[in-house]
């Protein structure tokens, strides 16, 4: 049954990668949870240390209002402000750039399109594969976190853990879809990765500078990291307004991929 649809075949191709990603997420979630009790004990010292750090540094790691001794402050500082988004970004950008452009560079895309399959269907199914892969990892991560916080008796809401996980996954998927669109438009995997990474870094730095430099404050809303990290979903939950931003970016990139891929010549 995995050979009946393009998206299932794509996920089947990625099964080994998805397994190792799942294992990584699981181990990471358990490790982060396991360290918390020790951190909580020495929270006061850490607080004092963090207070002494420059504002820019605190901004970069989103060491915001919560104490690092609190579960929310700890999980944000240790995981959701950097590690989780980065992992989803790597996964989604890698997947998105490989699925059309990578297949084109490997020379198999024209064999796929020699079948009676319209190009839009290839784009949609390959996007669905990337989105499902990302969603699967988000579920694995959330379950791992739930197991971790239970095992180490950490008082944090499962719903808020889900909110933070979904936010990171949506951030990853957004830039992954950008890579996907660049790959669909150009057939060049390297370019797709490069452009998506550059956009990610610009977006990340914009978010940080918006926090440090007062005159740039209004620019924070142009950083996608703002909607995934700065709005603090671990404390505040998932807000529809923020989710809509990601869905909008993904939709625009997907439409761009559909239009561009429909119009262009396939590479040899």
């Amino acid at each position: 049954m995995f050979l009946r649809y393009i998206f299932l075949k794509n996920l089947r191709d990625k099964r080994a990668a998805i397994f190792w990603w799942s294992l990584s997420f699981f181990l990471l979630a358990i490790s982060v949870a396991s360290i918390y009790p020790a951190v909580a004990e020495t929270a006061a010292d850490l607080e004092a240390y963090i207070e002494s750090l420059p504002d820019a540094f605190k901004a970069a790691f989103a060491l915001g209002d919560e104490s690092i001794g609190s579960p929310v402050g700890y999980f944000n500082a240790e995981f959701f402000t950097f590690m989780a988004p980065i992992m989803f970004l790597i996964f989604a950008i890698g997947f998105g750039s490989a699925t059309i452009a990578g297949e084109e560079e490997a020379g198999t895309l024209s064999m796929l399109l020699a079948n009676p399959v319209p190009r839009w269907r290839v784009v949609i199914e390959k996007f669905v594969a990337m989105a499902l892969g990302t969603a699967f990892l988000a579920v694995v991560l959330w379950l791992s976190l739930v197991v971790g916080v239970r095992a180490f008796d950490i008082d944090i809401s499962q719903g808020r853990l889900a909110a933070a996980t979904v936010s990171s996954a949506l951030l990853g998927l957004s830039f992954g879809t950008v890579a996907f669109a660049v790959g669909a438009a150009t057939g060049r995997r390297g370019l797709a990765v490069a452009l998506a990474v550059v956009l990610t870094v610009v977006s990340y730095l914009l978010g940080i500078f918006a926090k440090i430099v007062e005159s740039l404050e209004s620019f924070e809303q142009f950083s996608l990291f703002y909607y995934a990290v700065d709005v603090n979903p671990l404390a505040n939950g998932l807000k529809a307004g923020n989710v809509v931003v990601f869905i909008g970016v993904i939709a625009v990139a997907l439409v761009a991929a559909l239009v561009a891929f429909e119009r262009r010549d396939l590479a040899v």
Partner: peptide
């Protein structure tokens, strides 16, 4: 799509999964 349904194609430089 209608055309490709009725065509069998072998490329010169065959690449398969």
């Amino acid at each position: 799509v209608d055309i490709n349904r009725r065509i069998g194609y072998l490329p010169g430089e065959l690449e398969l999964y």
